[in-house]
Design a protein around this nucleic acid. Structure first.
Length: 336
DNA sequence: TAGATTTGACCGGT
DNA sequence: ACCGGTCAAATCTA
């Protein structure tokens, strides 16, 4: 079969862009719906962030299949790993937005990332991990290659948020000319599963209540606890074959306190939303771009939103995604 | 007692 | 030489 990935992407780019923009709007509306239900207060814009990142990706190297795959994986991490959500209740600004660059610039990819160099850097990290079993590991403490070229993105939040991943703090550093120290986190499953994701969290100097999180690398781990949550939340396993993550659209459970909060004696709410679409299409659980660490909103919940709040356009959109012309399945099929 | 956090040391990049 | 990122022993906590 003759199939050109880049041609396909290019020819479908406009459609993909439209769908993602639409999805962004839907995510915002969904977030608003949740706020209206007084379940959890949060960051309206955060739910759209994943789409923003996706748009950035698609505007970039859409012709490089491997690159995009990697970026999608990275974005998946961003979607599930970059949490939105406000710092809970009164700590969030009225409009729910985070104090950042404003507009769609809530998160940003490092424009200078060099994929090859990033791989080299991360390979080195793997070597370091493997060295753990050797007697020389202790002597190489602190040996690493700076992730300067690893793709990264930042996010400002009006408080500490739980981004749906398990993080373990490994460092705390006073930064030169910075008013506040920087906290370093790595994925809890770094050694168990070789997950290379890390993040830095630091209070914004001009806005001490705003935390700036910089994410590095992508999550390749599977959080089995979260996965089991998915199963537990599933009232109908047959409906669980497809998940669409809208990046922490402010919902549901208070699952894990971000370790960074320990430094600020505050509380946080882990918010992440998965819209579970009942569909015959299969995006299986083998695809860890989508599954780890996401929560579920059942179709019943979505229907409840339809009747509970001013979410014009939402219901029809849900039906759209639920219909035969499954947009997201097409997007995924085209991009992977 | 296992896992998480703290904190000083170490090392690479600039 | 300085700064920032990471390591790992010590300590804390559930």
């Amino acid at each position: 079969m003759e199939w050109s990935w880049s041609d396909s992407v290019l020819s479908n780019r406009e459609r993909v862009m439209e769908e993602l923009i639409q999805g962004r709007e839907l995510a915002s509306q969904l977030s608003t719906a949740y706020d209206n239900r007084s379940v959890v207060n949060g960051d309206d814009e955060g739910s759209a962030e994943g789409f923003v990142n996706t748009l950035l990706i698609l505007n970039g190297k859409e012709s490089d299949q491997e690159f995009v795959s990697d970026q999608i994986q990275g974005n998946s991490s961003g979607v599930s790993g970059v949490s939105g959500g406000g710092g809970g209740g009164s700590g969030v600004s009225d409009d729910g937005s985070v104090v950042s660059g404003g507009g769609a610039d809530l998160s940003s990819w490092d424009a200078n990332h060099d994929h090859a160099a990033a791989i080299k850097s991360e390979d080195y990290t793997e070597e370091e991990i493997s060295c753990k079993s050797t007697s020389t590991f202790k002597d190489r403490r602190g040996s690493y290659k700076r992730r300067k070229t690893t793709h990264s993105w930042t996010r400002d939040t009006p408080g500490l948020i739980d981004d749906g991943h398990a993080w373990r703090k490994y460092g705390h550093k006073v930064i030169h000319n910075a008013k506040h120290p920087r906290n370093y986190f790595r994925c809890t499953y770094k050694f168990d599963q070789g997950c290379k994701a890390t993040k830095h969290v630091q209070q914004v100097q001009d806005h001490p209540s705003v935390l700036r999180t910089t994410y590095y690398g992508t999550h390749t781990c599977i959080d089995y606890f979260k996965t089991s949550d998915l199963v537990l939340d599933c009232t109908n396993l047959r409906d669980s074959s497809m998940f669409i993550s809208f990046d922490n659209a402010n919902c549901l459970t208070n699952k894990q306190e971000d370790p960074f909060f320990a430094s600020f004696a505050s509380s946080s709410v882990k918010e992440e939303l998965i819209v579970k679409a009942t569909s015959d299409h299969t995006l299986t659980s083998h695809d860890n771009h989508w599954l780890p660490s996401d929560y579920l909103v059942s179709h019943d919940d979505l229907m409840a939103f339809k009747s509970s709040g001013p979410v014009s356009g939402f219901s029809s959109s849900i039906e759209q995604y639920d219909g035969d012309d499954d947009v997201f399945s097409r997007i995924i099929a085209e991009l992977i």
